[in-house]
């Protein structure tokens, strides 16, 4: 009988260690100290024992009961944080064993969020080369050589000796050339987004980097409208910035779209531009070899760094590619 009580006590103490919630504690109490518990049974049936045993078992049983009640109270208090020290031998406040945890770069996080938003609208994902031919970066997008619009993209050029046809090569200044590549190889309907790195010959400061990401978007189908463009981008902005976000379209100019759009969101008291867009320019269709007059489409482009900066209150774009862990580990 004594052995039984002792075993019971060890079992109860062990079980108590795994209790965390109030329900756990109550179950434990019913199980070990309740009216129908084993311990209660033993104490209830003590009358059937002989005098000697009655004394020993009774005192041990009661002692055990008091101890268990005390442990229950201590454990409860410890879990609920009412006391900072423990009577048990475990120092539960010690640090845990080390496990290395990796984190995604904030640009990757933002790119994934953007992708998710557009994939849910039926867009697929494509990529294209970062070193690009002049033809795709500019000409096919209705930006001929010596056109003043070229000033919108300060370009870094690649030594053309390495191109076997002597064609001009550059570091793509936007992801838009992938539009032209897709239309060259694929028939409508098209819904695609293109994330990737871009480069511009631009002095760096807190809002400019020469090396950055862009996400391009393109939709081509019969009779797509400006309203469709607006609906798609409004939906995107609400997914990224919250369903209550105020959004604004204003007129802007990009040579590969007409009409052209600049989209802003109202954020902390200010209108902030987040992307450029518009209806695909007929010249771009013409150069891609799309002849169907009923085709229309829209395109858009955005900078994930800018979106991340707005969302996370980051005041310097250079933080993204200086890769200081004290920055990266915050996300």
């Amino acid at each position: 009988m004594i052995e039984k009580i002792e075993k019971l006590k060890i079992k109860a103490e062990n079980d108590l260690k795994s209790c965390v919630s109030d329900k756990d504690f109550e179950d434990w109490r019913v199980n070990y100290l309740g009216r129908k518990s084993e311990l209660s049974d033993i104490l209830k049936n003590i009358k059937n024992l002989d005098q000697e045993q009655k004394k020993v078992v009774g005192s041990l049983g009661n002692k055990t009961r008091i101890e268990l009640e005390g442990k229950l109270k201590d454990t409860k208090n410890r879990i609920s944080g009412t006391i900072g020290t423990s009577k048990s031998s475990e120092d539960y406040s010690l640090p845990s064993r080390h496990i290395s945890m990796g984190k995604l770069h904030p640009v990757t996080l933002t790119l994934r969020e953007i992708r998710k938003a557009f994939v849910s609208l039926g867009f697929q994902i494509a990529e294209g080369p970062e070193i690009e031919l002049d033809k795709y970066n500019f000409d096919m997008l209705n930006i001929p050589e010596d056109h003043p619009a070229r000033d919108m993209w300060d370009t870094m050029w690649i030594d053309e000796k390495i191109n076997k046809n002597g064609e001009k090569m550059l570091l793509r200044t936007h992801t838009s050339p992938v539009q032209a590549r897709i239309m060259e190889n694929q028939d409508p309907p098209i819904r695609v987004i293109v994330p990737g790195k871009c480069y511009r010959y631009e002095a760096t400061d807190s809002t400019h980097e020469w090396h950055f990401y862009q996400v391009e978007g393109l939709a081509v189908d019969k009779n797509l409208t400006f309203s469709d463009l607006k609906g798609t981008l409004y939906e995107f902005a609400k997914k990224m910035f919250g369903s209550e976000t105020k959004i604004r379209f204003r007129c802007d100019y990009f040579p590969f779209v007409e009409p052209g759009v600049d989209m802003s969101i109202y954020w902390e008291g200010k209108w902030l531009e987040i992307l450029g867009a518009g209806m695909v320019h007929p010249k771009v269709f013409e150069k891609a070899g799309y002849k169907d007059k009923n085709l229309s489409g829209f395109a858009f482009g955005m900078g994930p760094e800018r979106i991340a900066m707005i969302k996370h209150n980051i005041d310097d774009i250079r933080l993204f590619y200086s890769n200081d862990l004290r920055f990266l580990e915050q996300f």
Binding site: R191, D228, R250
Partner: peptide, 17 residues
Amino acid sequence: YDSIPATPISGVIPEWK
């Protein structure tokens, strides 16, 4: 541009590749 409505994108969802 504000007077033009925003509508859900129309047309065919391209085949998923």
